[in-house]
């Protein structure tokens, strides 16, 4: 990279991707999350989105948000909506998130952070 313009181009392109039309499902995968079982959750989310052919849904990972006691944590970003955080997510709950929230458009309220706070 030779110039700030090049850096800004990457920034704009990535912002467009992140804020675009895709639904993002983000799993907390720091050591604490992994220890609590985030990997099978990540795999289940991936498998389920692929199985259902959900094209504009991306599953990705992130670091630790700090609330280790609720781990595994999953954030769902649907364009135009407030982020939803799911807690104590298991592979089964991961499939529910896809089924109810991503496909059905209904937040699975009984497993979000609001259900335990």
């Amino acid at each position: 990279m030779k110039s700030i313009e090049e850096l800004n181009a990457v920034k704009e392109k990535t912002l467009a991707r992140l804020n675009g039309n895709t639904v993002r499902i983000v799993v907390g995968m720091a050591t604490c999350g992994i220890a609590a079982g985030a990997k099978p959750v990540f795999d289940a989310l991936k498998e389920e989105t692929e199985k259902r052919g959900l094209e504009n849904v991306v599953v990705s990972q992130t670091g630790c948000i700090g609330m280790c006691k609720y781990e595994p944590l999953v954030d769902v970003y649907v364009p135009g909506h407030e982020k939803v955080t799911y807690v104590f997510v298991s592979p089964e709950k991961a499939r529910r998130i896809i089924d109810e929230h991503i496909v059905g458009g209904q937040i699975a309220e009984d497993i979000t952070v609001a259900s335990v706070e």
């Binding site: 609330m67 407030e82 937040i107």
Partner: peptide, 12 residues
């Protein structure tokens, strides 16, 4: 009601 972790007492 909010379902985002950022809005909890812990985070805000």
């Amino acid at each position: 009601m909010t379902h985002a972790i950022d809005k909890t007492n812990f985070c805000n």
